[in-house]
Design a protein around this nucleic acid. Structure first.
Lengths: 202, 202
DNA sequence: CTTAATAGGGAACGATGAGTATCTTATACG
DNA sequence: CGTATAAGATACTCATCGTTCCCTATTAAG
């Protein structure tokens, strides 16, 4: 019925990437609950049949979309030679690139994990922040430089900055003001990590 | 058609409370998304018509259920005369009574607030923890006692314990181990609030 | 005892969306 | 070119769920 002559028909990896991008955008905009297969197909400019030829059902599609996003866009901490700037840089990158990611993931993953059995805790690290892996590296460098005492920064303290940022993203559902990042680093993380000596160089 | 003779037919406020309790239990168990009007009616032992006679639609019902819960079960901090025990007591009460509350609320409210327009940030304080109000009181008492310096505890630091607990509840979706609460208070909150002097009396 | 409200039980309607099937047509590959 | 493969479009089935209606039974009030 449609009179559209197909201009260009995508195939293989190109098509797949377009679909996964579309799927992610739907999740980010509508949340996992509002996320429909029809909408993804429409947004990707294709049809449901094509999706179902690749993924067995909706949860698998969502899973794939998230995995695709994470693979495409890993968050790495900068290496500035100063703990403060490393951590702040990490938070800034998360904040810039992951707006909507943490929010959408955490805000909607209640259902997602009900559907898929994926554990939320598992996603924490890799998913919304690049997580400990990045933070661990930052702290290890600081220890090597002698900037912080070995063993002073517990796992929980290490998670603190990204957890707090995630909290902000979650509650506000929009990009967090840079001043908040600075506050988190200067008034919370650094005092705990370095023992309260003035660290500020705002 | 049912052969059940109705033993006692509830009305008015009694019935309403039963419905709202049932509604809350559904939200806590299934999440806002899995929350169906049929299920609430069934759980409350009544019929949908009764619900629709009282609330215009599903989001309003959910709203009412949450409001009902919060009104019925305010979290108050204990007054032990020591900052540490007050904060820890507060966290424990939140942890006990609000399992599922913070989790269900935060994990599913993405949809809820999409539906209702309720702002997540607004719910933070009142909803899942009894929030700053309780914490503010705790800190004020500590200042009055001279236990902490006036002005040392910023708003963000004040939110820290409940925010971290909420994070744990959210990610784990189950009651948090008491050791975690102790860790939050002793290694994070107290050092920040009191300036790092040893405060522990575990 | 009478009457007006209102609870309870269902059935019914409409919308939405997952998943399937079919058909046509573009395109990669030989 | 010619052919197998897969894309794109459309339409259909089936289940779920919000919302409305209707009818009967109960209860409070006078």
């Amino acid at each position: 019925m449609s009179t559209h002559p197909v201009r260009h028909r995508r195939r293989g990896a190109t098509l797949e990437a377009a679909i996964l991008d579309a799927a992610w955008e739907e999740i980010a905009e509508r949340g996992y609950t509002g996320f429909t297969v029809d909408a993804v197909a429409a947004r990707a400019g294709t049809s449901k049949a094509v999706l179902y030829r690749r993924w067995p059902d909706k949860p698998e599609l969502a899973r794939a979309a998230i995995a695709h996003l994470l693979a495409a866009d890993p968050v790495v901490a900068p290496d500035t030679g100063r703990l403060r700037d490393d951590v702040l840089g990490l938070l800034r990158r998360v904040n810039e690139r992951r707006v909507g990611v943490a929010a959408a993931l955490v805000a909607n993953l209640g259902d997602f994990y009900r559907d898929t059995g994926t554990d939320l805790g598992t996603l924490r690290d890799s998913a919304s922040t690049g997580g400990p892996s990045a933070m661990v590296a930052v702290v290890e460098r600081a220890v090597r430089r002698g900037e912080v005492e070995q063993g002073r920064v517990s796992e929980r303290i290490m998670r603190l900055p990204t957890d707090l940022l995630r909290m902000e993203l979650l509650l506000g559902a929009r990009e967090v003001d840079d001043a908040v990042l600075v506050e988190i680093v200067d008034t919370i993380f650094l005092p705990l990590a370095t023992g309260g000596r003035a660290q500020r160089t705002v």
